[in-house]
Amino acid sequence: RELEKFANEFKVRRIKLGYTQTNVGEALAAVHGSEFSQTTICRFENLQLSFKNACKLKAILSKWLEEAE
């Protein structure tokens, strides 16, 4: 439930900031050390990743959002 809420909020905030899914994937290299594909970001936003992978990505995306805003 919390993950679903974060995924929805993330998408809204990403769009408000003017980032595409591809931009986010590339920008994550600075935060995490490796890029993520547009497909991975899309699957996260649509809750199509495994729970374990989504939880890992949530932590990375939270950190990125803090820096982007």
Results as ranks from 00 to 15, higher is better:
Leu17His: 07
Cys42Ile: 06
Glu69Val: 01
Asn8Val: 10
Cys55Gly: 08
Ala29Arg: 12
Ala27Gly: 03
Cys42Tyr: 10
Asn53Gly: 12
Ile41Val: 06
Glu66Trp: 06
Ala54Gly: 09
Leu3Ser: 02
Glu66Tyr: 09
Thr20Val: 03
Val12Lys: 12
Gly25Leu: 04
Ser50Trp: 12
Arg13Lys: 09
Phe10Met: 05
Ala68Ser: 06
Leu17Gly: 01
Glu26Asn: 12
Phe36Arg: 01
Arg13Trp: 04
Cys55Thr: 12
Ala68Pro: 00
Lys52Phe: 08
Lys52Asp: 14
Gly18Cys: 04
Gln48Thr: 11
Val12Ser: 14
Ile41Lys: 02
Glu4Pro: 01
Arg14Tyr: 03
Glu35Asp: 11
Leu49Lys: 00
Glu26Arg: 06
Ile41Met: 07
Cys55Tyr: 13
Thr39Gln: 15
Ser37Ala: 05
Ala7Met: 06
Ile41His: 06
Thr22Arg: 15
Gly25Cys: 13
Val12Pro: 03
Ser62Phe: 13
Arg43Glu: 15
Arg13Leu: 01
Leu49Tyr: 07
Ala30Met: 10
Ser62Gly: 10
Lys11Trp: 01
Ser37Gly: 12
Ile15Asn: 06
Ser34Met: 11
Ala7Thr: 08
Arg14Asn: 01
Glu67Met: 10
Asn46Met: 07
Thr20Ile: 00
Phe36Pro: 04
Arg13His: 03
Ile60Arg: 08
Val24Asn: 05
Glu69Gln: 05
Glu9Met: 12
Cys42Thr: 13
Leu49His: 04
Trp64Val: 00
Arg1Ile: 06
Ala68Leu: 03
Phe6Gly: 04
Lys63Gln: 11
Ile60Met: 10
Phe51Asp: 13
Lys5Trp: 05
Phe10Leu: 04
Ala59Lys: 14
Glu26Val: 07
Lys58Val: 05
Ala27Asn: 03
Ala59Gln: 13
Gln48Tyr: 03
Phe44Met: 01
Thr20Pro: 00
Glu26Asp: 15
Lys11Gln: 07
Leu3Arg: 03
Ala30Ile: 09
Glu35Val: 09
Glu67Ala: 10
Leu57His: 10
Ala29Tyr: 05
Glu2Asn: 06
Leu65Thr: 01
Lys5His: 12
Val12Tyr: 09
Lys16Met: 08
Thr22Glu: 15
Thr40Leu: 13
Gly25Phe: 09
Glu69Asp: 09
Glu2Tyr: 05
Leu49Arg: 02
Lys16Glu: 10
Ile15Thr: 12
Glu66Leu: 08
Glu35Gln: 13
Cys55His: 12
Ser37Cys: 09
Gly33Gln: 10
Leu17Lys: 02
Leu65Pro: 03
Lys5Asp: 14
Glu4Thr: 10
Phe44Gly: 00
Ser37Trp: 01
Val24Phe: 01
Leu28Trp: 03
Arg13Met: 06
Lys56Pro: 05
Gln48Pro: 07
Lys16Asp: 04
Ala7Gln: 00
Leu61Glu: 05
Thr20Tyr: 00
Trp64Pro: 05
Asn8Pro: 03
Ser37Arg: 03
Asn46Thr: 05
Glu26Phe: 02
Ser62Gln: 14
Ala27Lys: 07
Lys58Cys: 01
Thr40Trp: 05
Ala54Tyr: 09
Glu2Ile: 04
Leu3Glu: 04
Ser34Cys: 07
Ile15Ser: 09
Lys52Gly: 11
Gln21Val: 09
Ser37Pro: 06
Cys42Asn: 14
Glu4Arg: 10
Gly25His: 06
Arg43Phe: 09
Ala30Leu: 10
Thr22Cys: 12
Glu4His: 05
Cys55Trp: 11
Asn8Ala: 15
Ile15Gln: 14
Leu61Cys: 08
Thr40Met: 07
Lys63Pro: 09
Arg43Ala: 15
Phe44Pro: 00
Glu4Cys: 06
Ile15Leu: 10
Ser50Gln: 06
Arg43Tyr: 02
Phe44Tyr: 02
Ser34Glu: 14
Asn8Phe: 10
Lys56Met: 10
Leu57Arg: 05
Lys5Gln: 11
Phe6Gln: 01
Glu2Leu: 04
Cys42Ser: 15
Thr40Phe: 01
Ala27Arg: 07
Glu35Ala: 12
Leu61Thr: 03
Lys56Ala: 10
Asn8Asp: 06
Ala54Arg: 00
Asn8Cys: 07
Ala29Cys: 08
Leu28Arg: 06
Ile15Val: 10
Ser34Gly: 13
Glu26Lys: 15
Glu67Pro: 04
Asn8Ser: 14
Leu65His: 01
Lys16Cys: 12
Lys63Met: 11
Val31Ile: 14
Phe6Glu: 03
Ala59His: 13
Gly25Lys: 02
Leu61Tyr: 03
Glu69Ser: 08
Gly33Asp: 04
Trp64Gln: 05
Lys16Tyr: 05
Glu35Trp: 10
Glu9Arg: 05
Val24Cys: 09
Gln21Lys: 04
Phe36Cys: 06
Glu67Lys: 11
Gln21Cys: 11
Ser50Val: 01
Ser50Tyr: 02
Leu61Ala: 07
Ser34Trp: 06
Glu69Asn: 02
Leu28Pro: 02
Val31Leu: 13
Phe10Ser: 06
Val24Gly: 03
Asn46Glu: 08
Lys63Asn: 08
Lys16Asn: 12
Lys5Val: 09
Cys42Leu: 05
Leu57Thr: 10
Lys5Leu: 10
Leu47Asn: 15
Glu69Cys: 06
Gly33Leu: 00
Glu26Ser: 05
Thr40Gln: 10
Phe6Thr: 00
Val31Asp: 07
Phe6Val: 00
Thr22Lys: 15
Leu57Asn: 04
Asn8Gln: 15
Glu35Arg: 10
Glu9Gln: 11
Val31His: 06
Glu9Trp: 13
Phe44Trp: 01
Glu67Tyr: 08
Leu17Pro: 02
Lys58His: 08
